[in-house]
Design a protein around this nucleic acid. Structure first.
Lengths: 347, 347
DNA sequence: GTTAGCACTCTTTATAACTGAGTGCTAATT
DNA sequence: AATTAGCACTCAGTTATAAAGAGTGCTAAC
């Protein structure tokens, strides 16, 4: 059987009605709401065909039709119009995005907030994965007799530092030497490369005093690198699910929130997704726990390289077209803003 | 009417049964479960008295009795035993607390996690309020031709830094001079004092070049101070409420989670509470939205001064005794660990 | 090929009857 | 005078039954 023009029109009507109302749509309703020029009886026949072809399902005999995941996939791939945002909408979003905010971390967090407000879904944002970020500069600064500050600067402009206690007395020259040595050894290495690079013998064989100092510094250095490698996950609009019919019972809501409560797992899921605007529907999601959710994610870039993600998660019934546009616009906007080396809108 | 010994015993029995089961407790049940040596009829009479005195309520005529908030207050003040933790329990908690963790921030976060696991409630932890933290050391370090790093160290050991772009070319001497000058001016000031201190004319009148540099640095310096002044709120066990009978309907759960979603408001509430172990029951909470919750918070200290809080929030029916002990133990433990100047267990 | 008509299905809503836990009162007991 | 047994009464919650409503699928007419 073929998907005739008319079948497509009917399917589209069903999908868009169902997305709006969350109610199974019947032939009568459909013929009233959409001017398809055919009677309910004809629609019923076509619906039966569409069901046979796997695009519709039936909650029970005497209920209307509901789009299947396959229908959503078709809709997303071929049928939905991306609903270009109007200039006003774009301006409103952009100005909201940078309200009081100039740093990447905050901007990204803010983007999640805007996204959940616009979509009425749960949104999330992932800070850039520092995979390609390389070390630029390492310094050790004396503060006290027994405290020094370890400072690490990456090429992307990330700065990180920790105070650390030094057990044995140190000299400023020792510190400086070690810092220079570390910079020399690590500069240009990515953070993860730096982590695997075992460098401590270099110091030992080199100069005695520096070796002792290095033994003090290295564990903290490694821990700081690990911390710099972490990405942050922000979420917003978590309680939005309570107004979504699909989650209007305690158990469903609980499962949903518990899933999102496992931040590490969820982060991993997001990192593993391809770049660009990606939509996964229901069982297309690898994770058992997401089998009746849809995910829309998009990637933004910082400095043209480091990539982070923002997106939304909700029931398979969601306004794919509008959401895709918003997500896309947000990521483009962020990427443009943080295009310049060093991380953004500095003042 | 007086609270006779017997009335107290009955009240206590009702409270502890209700805390366990969340079911209104009837006279028959009570006489069976607790060996009070009196018949259900007598218990009924006493219950009627207790109700008249405001310690019990009645969901409806043919239901058992439920403790009023007044009863919980009495219980918390006079009747509950604090259930000293056993040595094993203490060890288990303490070892969990420091698993992989040596920094305050992480420890505190971890404490919230432990707390929610033990209590099966929603827990939270507030990082120390830096009210009394004073500035110790400010430095400006050259990185690029147009990038320098601003580093701020406080007496409590907090280090914070940001990369900043310098518009006009700078000299290392200028940087050094400015940093020394700033350290001289701000050292010993608390963070909030530093924020109010307008110091920029000093530089202008002083040396021209430094003035220009200062104009570049100061906005970021102020923003960084503001950031250092922020306290972080961590929460855990949010989804625990779904297994609490009091929140087994969507609306209640929604309200609860929305309340906790407003992190700024909640943080403010917590900061405003007195120090030490504080229990507020139902309407004792000033916030409208918490009128049927109880809050238990306790304060920990870092370096004997800076104070943070941890605690739990849940329905007025909670295991006050046990929770109080755990919260108390956790704060004591954290305070002891971070007693030494500079912030903790360094390695 | 399309449509009107109609029997049939199944959920949802409303109504009524039943059950059981628990109270409050009275009268008997200690 | 305090305690207790006994019993009528109350009311939430559950189960059973009926009625309503939305929608389908099929048949026969257009």
């Amino acid at each position: 059987m073929d998907l005739s023009e008319r079948k497509l029109r009917i399917l589209q009507a069903i999908i868009s009605d169902f997305i709006r109302t969350a109610e199974p749509v019947g032939s009568r309703t459909l013929s009233k709401k959409f001017d398809l020029g055919i009677s309910p009886a004809t629609i019923r026949n076509e619906m039966a065909d569409l069901e046979e072809m796997g695009f519709l399902t039936h909650p029970h005999t005497s209920a209307g039709r509901v789009p299947s995941e396959r229908a959503y996939r078709l809709y997303v791939d071929d049928m939905m119009k991306k609903k270009e945002l109007s200039e006003e909408e774009k301006n409103a979003i952009a100005s909201k995005l940078y309200e009081n905010v100039t740093e990447l971390e905050k901007t990204v967090q803010h983007a999640a907030k805007i996204l959940s407000e616009i979509t009425n879904l749960t949104s999330f944002a992932l800070t850039p994965s520092p995979d390609e970020d390389t070390l630029k500069y390492i310094n050790l600064l004396p503060v006290d007799e027994d405290t020094v500050v370890l400072m690490i600067v990456s090429h992307s402009g990330k700065v990180s530092n920790t105070a650390l206690k030094i057990k044995s007395p140190y000299t400023e020259e020792g510190l400086e030497l070690l810092a220079k040595n570390m910079t020399y050894n690590y500069r240009g290495k990515t953070l993860s490369e730096a982590l695997t690079l075992d460098i401590i013998e270099t110091f030992e064989s080199d100069i005695e005093a520096m070796g002792a100092l290095a033994k003090n510094v290295m564990p903290k250095f490694i821990r700081t690198l690990e911390e710099m490698l972490n990405v942050n996950l922000y979420m917003d609009g978590l309680t939005n699910i309570f107004s979504i019919p699909e989650y209007n019972n305690i158990d469903k809501a609980k499962m949903f929130l518990e899933m999102l409560g496992k931040k590490e797992d969820f982060t991993k899921t997001l990192i593993n997704r391809d770049n660009g605007v990606i939509i996964t529907i229901g069982k297309e999601n690898a994770e058992d726990i997401m089998q009746d959710c849809s995910l829309i994610t998009a990637t933004y870039h910082v400095d043209g390289k480091l990539a982070g993600k923002i997106g939304v998660i909700g029931p398979t019934r969601m306004r794919y077209g509008e959401i895709t546009s918003v997500v896309e616009f947000l990521t483009e906007n962020i990427s443009n803003t943080f295009k310049l080396s060093g991380g953004g809108k500095d003042d």
